[in-house]
Design a protein around this nucleic acid. Structure first.
Lengths: 324, 324
DNA sequence: TATTGTCGTGCAAACGTTTGCATGCAAGAG
DNA sequence: CTCTTGCATGCAAACGTTTGCACGACAATA
């Protein structure tokens, strides 16, 4: 592990000022092409690589962003991590990932810890209050994912249109007792989906039946399946695919067949074809969402950036084997 | 977004030298308790928070580690991320996550990009060659997870004992045609499991049947299930739970019942009870693994650190509904 | 030929810390 | 009463960059 080489060593080597070496890396257009080449060669020879921290210290830009999310293990998030990282790469940014374990206290703590060492924060599915989020956003560039807070840039992955379409499909197929099984109480997505089911069903003159899988995990959904069944629902919309999966297992355990006895529509399309039968769901363009978030983050803090950007994109209905 | 406050502003405020403020934060024992208190109060008042980069510049420690892994979306890794982050937190370290998308080129690239800005690297399930990994480890503190390269610190999550136990169980239940369906070709875990199945079965005087799900994902496993069936296997060991899941779906599609017609044993226990029937698998202590990795990383680079640490921990067999 | 402009490069002052050394002071030892 | 010791703090030099300003050379214009 030999000692790191610096910009002045490179400079000495070819008899040039340190500032010239610096410029060769940060703004080559200012230099004679030949000089740039000489610098690059020398740098390569002695294995010079710019010191991130020195650079960050003087420019005030850390070259990193933070991605905070409630639960890495929830299949919704890993793709988000991947795409966010991919997008960040294009801007030369690295990504800190912080798992808050669905804990508000911890979320705040992680944000405060990350805050000073990143250029911006992407906060996905935050459980924090609007006020707190606004305060955070005032302090540094922030973009929210799936959380709609006025005045702070956000990208929302809406499922309203697709959900409406799915509901219409169910109603047309003759279903009249339709249930919605919600997820985490503080989740924006859950509120949105809940509201959509309610208003759409009312429009059809149907009364919605609401249930909730407290933590939105498989076990909770499994448990609540009995109630759904007891309510006599013939179709159920699940907060997300993992809830849908749990419900299906519960139904099967009780001898109900999907889709013959009860239809199931998931959301987020994280499980795709891995259930039996393959789960009908609502597919999300996470790649776009992540890319937008990073882009917005980049432009935030810049002069003339609107602080009230709201980027909404729609999921699309994918009918597979759990609906008829 | 008011301007950040610095150490000298805090110092001025209470008429003390900047170095004193610095010490209050880094080495309070050196100061009179009363002074420390005054510094802390003043810091809190003007909202001072130490600048990470300035600190990193002079100490040479960046306060971050990198975690590189082949695929965030593989359910094996999210828990690893969470636990690694938890362990890192205890040392005041933040975690960069890098997804290599199972691509060797990209893995190397990510490592080189991350390398200058972290204190150490945790590389999980690397697809790089031994030689390359050794070179990397020479340049900076590195610990490998599930990769056994001499001379570089590593934590191995072995499944040999549990696998042997599982095989014995199957054999005692009367199975004679037992198959192993492997995963990614360059994976250490796969090689280890393959070898274990081979030697154990030979010991029992049985001939193993080998197959492979190329990328180790659900779709590949689904596809290979036909071959396994055609070979007349009555029990199959899968590289991991997602392969097991794919196989089960394939079997079911062909009218085979699990476990009546064919037994299935997964590995890594990432799917737990979410399959039907609940998957027998081998459970891993990822929390310990992550914690060890971080701890080893911390001690590496320190004087007197052995460069050949090899930390091995065993998985444990969990019999559920897919074996009899 | 004198004047202005452009281009390529160097100089030196930051950026916000940490840390070895020096200093002053009070208390204990002789 | 002097001398030593140790503690609490201050001073100033780093750490490795970036960047505004200045400078000289040369070309273009007048």
């Amino acid at each position: 592990m030999k000692t790191k080489s610096t910009i002045v060593q490179v400079a000495k080597r070819i008899g040039v000022a340190p500032s010239t070496v610096s410029r060769a890396f940060t703004d080559p257009g200012k230099l004679k092409p030949e000089t740039v080449q000489r610098v690059m060669d020398a740098a390569a020879e002695i294995g010079y690589v710019p010191n991130h921290h020195a650079r960050a210290l003087i420019t005030g830009r850390s070259g990193a962003i933070g991605l905070v999310l409630p639960d890495v293990a929830n299949p919704f998030f890993p793709p988000l991590i991947r795409y966010a990282q991919l997008a960040a790469e294009d801007y030369g940014l690295a990504v800190f990932v912080a798992d808050t374990a669905e804990d508000t206290k911890r979320e705040l703590q992680m944000i405060e810890r990350l805050s000073p060492q990143v250029e911006g924060l992407i906060i996905a599915s935050s459980r924090l209050s609007d006020r707190v989020l606004q305060t955070i956003a005032e302090r540094q560039p922030t973009v929210l994912i799936n959380r709609d807070v006025a005045g702070v840039p956000r990208v929302l992955i809406s499922t309203s249109k697709a959900l409406e379409e799915g509901l219409r499909h169910l109603v047309e197929a003759g279903h009249t007792r339709i249930a919605y099984v919600g997820g985490p109480a503080r989740s924006w997505s859950d509120a949105q989906r809940h509201g959509c089911v309610q208003s759409t069903l009312e429009r059809f003159g149907l009364e919605p039946h609401f249930f909730r899988a407290k933590s939105g995990n498989y076990a909770d959904a499994l448990e609540v399946s009995g109630e759904v069944e007891a309510a006599g629902a013939t179709a159920v919309i699940a907060f997300d695919d993992v809830v849908a999966h749990g419900l299906m297992s519960g139904f099967r355990a009780h001898g109900l067949r999907v889709p013959e006895d009860i239809n199931v529509l998931g959301c987020d399309d994280t499980l795709a074809i891995t259930t039996h039968p393959p789960l009908s769901s609502i597919s999300l363009d996470l790649a776009s969402a992540a890319r937008s978030a990073v882009t917005i983050l980049r432009s935030a803090g810049r002069p003339g950036a609107s602080s009230d950007q709201r980027f909404e994109l729609e999921g699309s209905l994918v009918l597979r084997g759990t609906t008829n």
